[in-house]
Design a binder for these strands. Sequence first.
DNA 1: TTAGGGTTAG
Length: 705
Amino acid sequence: MRSGREQLSRLLESSSNVRLITQLHSLLIRSGQLTVVDCFFATRLVSSYAKVTSSSVARKLFDEIPHPNSFLWNAILRAHCRAHQWVETLHLFHCMASVPSKMDAYTLPNVLKACAELSLLHHGRAIHAVVVKSDRQYTCDMFVAAALVEMYAKCSEMCDAIRVFEGFEEPDVVLWTSVVSGYQQNGYAEKATAFFSKMVFENHLMPDPVTLVSVLSALGEQRDLQRGGCCHGFLIRRGFCLDIALVNSLLNFYAKMGQVKTAKRLFETMLVRDVISWSCMISCYAHNGRPIAALKVYRKMIELGVEPNSVTIISALQACSLACHLQEGRILHELALQKGLELEMSVATSLIDMYMNCSCYKEAISLFYRIPSKDAVSWATTIDGYTKNGFAGESLKLFKVMLLDNKVNPDAVTMLKVIDACSQMGVLCQAHCFHSYLIRCGFSDKVYVGAALIDLYSKCGSLDGAVRVYEGMFERDLVVWSSMIAAYGINGFGKKAVSTFECMIKSCIIPNNITFVSVLSACSHSGMVQEARRIFDSMGRVFGVTPDSKHYCIMVDLLARVGELQEALKLIEEMPKPVDPHVWCALLSGCRLYQDIEMGELVALRLLEIDASYAGYYNLLANMYASGGKWNKAEKVMRLIKERGLIKTPGYSSVLIGNDIRTFLAGGKIHQQEGKIRDMLRGLEVNIVEDLPFDDQEYPLEVAL
DNA sequence: TTAGGGTTAG
């Protein structure tokens, strides 16, 4: 027969809601069993409150006990740890340290955890020194060892973590897992999986769900679908399917691998889903280019009453950003405000990105300036947002502000965004300046920076600059090759682009969809129809790359430009549906050029079926009529634009004059120096004609024409 | 009385 004290203690231990714990607490006070001298029930209560993360109540109770014993001290440390109150944990530990006899092996894991979370490596090392000094008292304790491994791993000191691990002849699964997880969290995916293999195949230890979580993350990083599938099979056989963290990890693995259908199936079979499962699924769709599906999942989650957290909001915002879904984005902004998350760094950055992508740059900027301490990501997002909205000059100004602010160092991505802004401006001297800056900062050796610089120089019209960067690179990846191919292409050197493409294949670099966009558009710019046909045909057949709407668009444009209108139409008919309107536009331009009014009218009809409110389509049609002298029809279409109140976004070009960027809008106000500008243009035309090359050398097509 | 785990921003 159990005593009342023991029964009450067990009841407290099994209580999982605050109300019940509070009732038991009152009962203990009323019955006189909870006194300031009795640490037994105080410890039980503190532990129970900690389980339901009521650390403040636990602390109040603890503070009432004048002489806590080791058990009570450890319980309150754990309560603060569970509540992620790391500073308070350390503070209490220092109070406790004044009574050394109270500290034991149970104390250290909590304190080490706080050190790890606060990245207090020196503190952690000091505690490790205490452990070593204690000889066998703590050194053989596997719990302390696991906490030490975790602390070192969190502080990116994996060598020290391994030394702790190696101090044990027979480490248990938890200790092995700590190391696997440490490697994975520090970005050493291969080491993590190798360590896991050693644990299973050489040491014959059975992994548990926690081990598998870390392994799946590492396999996701390694893009190892096969071994991930083995883990899936294993967890089914071992009956771990109800471990929600493990299944979430598996869900995330399939999401990372782009296996959306498998992730969806897994999500649907989950008996219990928490907010992380839902967030994983939203993020899975958003990251795999299906923002509408992501938002659908988000709405379903809300409908089912699952409370979204900051990660859910971030993932849903990413979907809004991709789908340019401003209305839903604003609702999410309101939700973030209600939850007090608006200025949390990742949420604020996602909001800025969403507003920028939805062309609401003023709202994005206002939010950016309200973030109290900005990080490199928020700066880069805003810089990039300006560029996306066509304000590259503002991007560069903001970058200067970032440097003057001097609180955050720009990272590689920030640099790439600034290069993008420079590319949009297309001003060569600016490109030179920024390139010098990158060399000074030590970023110029990075492969991705090299690729971006090639792109920058080529967009500034300096093919020489692009070639110099390319030739000066020690390492060339797919992106570098693709950038160089594109650089030749946009500067009109189609043959060089194709020969670079062939050289890349000889170097055993497999082209991707972007490489094909570059090489096909290079052919298009130089009128190389046969080469384009050959390369387009090889895409799926030889390289396993399925042509998408961009590739079809380039091919249709190319065929239409050389007058192969029927072949272009045939290609469109072969395309997967729905056909992107840009493809029809390319054909319509060809109809205009070759005055195929009949086909042009049919194409225009298709375009207006897609979007009757887009003024650009009407303009294309009107231009086609005007080119053929069919003024009545052209006028009729233009009248339609006015009647329907449609507005066409004007095209523009810009030029650097002194330190000023001057922008010229198509159809804009007549420039005060228009006469002089036209004289200059006429002069240039004459010079171009006089300088026309007539040998076999390759010259940019635009110039030759 | 104690340990290792899952979702997120450019």
